[in-house]
Amino acid sequence: MNTHGPRRLFGTHQPRLRGPDRGPNPLRRRSDRIQSWCTVLFLLTLVCGLPAAALSAAHAAYGSQMRVVRAEEASRHAITARLAETPPGGPHRVDRQSPWQARVRWTGADGGHHSGTATVTGGTEAGDAVRVWVDRSGALVRPPASPSTARTVGWFAGCLTAAAVVTVAYAARARARQVLDRGRYARWEAEWKVVEPAWSGRERR
């Protein structure tokens, strides 16, 4: 009885499975190498180019919007005005969180009386004090944009840029593969025209 395991049938060493051929592969076509490089370029674009492009776009959009915020904050200021009308149906017919357009009156820095239409919150009635915004000329304007708006714009620009980079990268990779496949099919067809007569025996007739 053999206590040393199964006997080797072929020689003194068991055959070992060869690893993948690391040398030049004769079956590897030039189009295969080009496709491999396209895949590497595609992955580099996703790993390196996508974050860089998205962050750059987000930073640029955020900076631009913050300049708008600072300009609006510098050119607008809040004042206290008096509501000149009551919402239709009474103050309790409008939710306190629901804004509505109403006439307001206020006294300007020059002592003159002004009036206009502003957006106010619900739950108010004629004579209540409301906060409105005016520009340097004293005209009613909307409140200045907030830094949170700038952050939202930055995030949106970054996400949109990331989606655009992914779309363009996928489209370029698909187009490159389509062109390479077209060349492969053309070469296969040309080679088949040479090989098929001999393979099918039509040349021996």
Rank of each mutant, 00 (worst) to 15 (best):
Y62T: 12
G63R: 09
S64I: 05
Q65R: 13
M66Y: 01
R67S: 13
R67L: 08
V69W: 03
A71P: 05
E73K: 10
S75W: 01
R76H: 08
H77E: 01
H77R: 15
R82I: 07
L83D: 10
L83P: 12
A84I: 07
T86G: 08
P87Q: 08
P88G: 07
G89H: 10
P91E: 10
Q97N: 14
S98V: 12
P99F: 13
P99I: 03
Q101Y: 02
A102D: 03
R103S: 14
R103H: 13
V104H: 07
V104G: 08
R105D: 08
G108S: 15
G111M: 08
G111D: 09
H113P: 02
H113K: 09
H114N: 11
H114C: 10
H114Y: 12
G116H: 02
G116F: 03
A118W: 03
T121R: 14
T121Y: 13
G123N: 10
E125Q: 12
A126I: 04
G127E: 00
D128I: 01
V130S: 05
V130E: 00
V130K: 06
W133R: 11
V134H: 05
V134Y: 00
D135Q: 14
S137E: 15
S137I: 04
A139L: 04
A139F: 01
A139E: 07
R142I: 05
R142W: 00
P143T: 11
P144G: 02
A145N: 11
P147F: 04
P147H: 01
A150Q: 08
F156C: 04
F156A: 15
A157Y: 06
T161G: 06
A162Q: 06
A163R: 11
V166E: 01
T167A: 15
V168D: 01
A169R: 07
A169E: 01
Y170F: 13
R173E: 00
R175N: 03
R175H: 06
A176R: 00
A176Q: 00
Q178K: 10
V179D: 09
L180I: 08
R184Q: 01
A186K: 10
R187G: 01
R187K: 12
